[in-house]
Design a protein around this nucleic acid. Sequence first.
DNA 1: GTGCGCAGTGGTGTATACAATCAGGCAACG
DNA 2: CGTTGCCTGATTGTATACACCACTGCGCAC
Lengths: 247, 247
Amino acid sequence: MDQLNEPSGNTHSTRALIELRKKILNGELAGGTRLFEVPLAEELEISRTPVREAMSRLAEEGLLDRVKSGGFVVRTFGFEDVVDAIELRGVLEGTAARLAAERGVSAEALAKMREIVRGLDACFGEAPDDVDFDAYSELNATFHIELAGLAGSEVVRREVARVARLPFASPSAFSPDLADIAAFRRSLNLAQEQHRSIVSAIAAREGSRAEALAREHARAARRNLEYVLREDRSLIDQLPGFALVVD
Amino acid sequence: MDQLNEPSGNTHSTRALIELRKKILNGELAGGTRLFEVPLAEELEISRTPVREAMSRLAEEGLLDRVKSGGFVVRTFGFEDVVDAIELRGVLEGTAARLAAERGVSAEALAKMREIVRGLDACFGEAPDDVDFDAYSELNATFHIELAGLAGSEVVRREVARVARLPFASPSAFSPDLADIAAFRRSLNLAQEQHRSIVSAIAAREGSRAEALAREHARAARRNLEYVLREDRSLIDQLPGFALVVD
DNA sequence: GTGCGCAGTGGTGTATACAATCAGGCAACG
DNA sequence: CGTTGCCTGATTGTATACACCACTGCGCAC
């Protein structure tokens, strides 16, 4: 299930997978496009077999849909779908947080979360918009990965990971491209306060609070989306995966 | 060269899919078993290609895991996984209900839900444990399918359907096999009251209430699981999909 | 005895030829 | 004039041969 197994394009099929995913995410293959095996195989200079294999995996990822008569089409996302995917991530991360709080987590796991929060703290400088962006972004991703597993449930961890796999719904969706907007950098202070609160709620076994906080935390991504739509729609083209969003 | 075979499945690959799924769900292929293409192909009297295709789809369904060096293993579920899957279904159905309430649903859609509820009402007789079981079961499934789509969000509908696809997490998981236990039949009165309440909460735009009700509704399945574990563990073997639960 | 290497074996990865199927148009027929 | 049915090209489904890779167990050197 996990894409642990795409090392370096060792096999033709993993190379095709990576290649196709790239083409889909950067919009080279628009949503709704039907993928034909023969032309793709020719283009990638491989046979149909690994192409099929790659498409099958992309269907697993949710980037392709199977069509009933056979074959695949690139899935289309509208802005409502993006909003809903973000909402779902919030809901599922909220569930992970709630279950972690209700069931309790080990002292070590809690210490690890606090360590990550401390690391995130260290990314902030004196001024409100002074942030070490790369470090923040990476630690933020780690925070969300750890949070997903904190309830000790593989099923929950998996589904959280799954919905966060859509690039525009991932916790770091807006990070790289909004980095030079001061308002966005300042908003990270709030996000970090939420990180802290989520951990403290889990530690205090406050399940409902942990869930609500995690949901609200995900809505930061939604606010960023709305900001982009309102202030500068052209920014969208630079956001990862948004090329496949049509509306 | 091959004759028309088997009632179900037009292509070899769909036949293999159905066959393999059956074998997994009835425990013929235990959790953790690695699936080898060649023996399976021989057993099903087809070539490796459709077997691979079928396994790929089963991985999509969540019944198989891909192993890093290639190939697939039957996914293992413990009882905690079952509990968590049920919990997740509740969470996602709750989200569908909440969003439906918050965003509002058309009069027609609401009428349809009420119609289903009326149909469910008609399944109950005079005595508390007098229930037309088959009719209830089918209408109940319809209710849950419609509920998943009620928010008008394809993303939400899809993810609800996905988590309900695990047979032991589905809304009708316990229906067929507990039908002759009077206590279970009586519990359906409560479930039906919840159906009614969910619809009324959505109609009244009471999102939080709708969400809470849908969550609690899913926990009926959890209570049934706990009942089975407590009262008569041997019943488990008759529940659909539980053969693949190991613990 | 221990580590290293090296083939053998079992399994998946890939190419490719051929079969089955689907969609669309065109023609014969009611 | 509509409807049916077949024809045909495009596309996927299937079988199969072969390539390759990973693991294992044995033997050899040290």
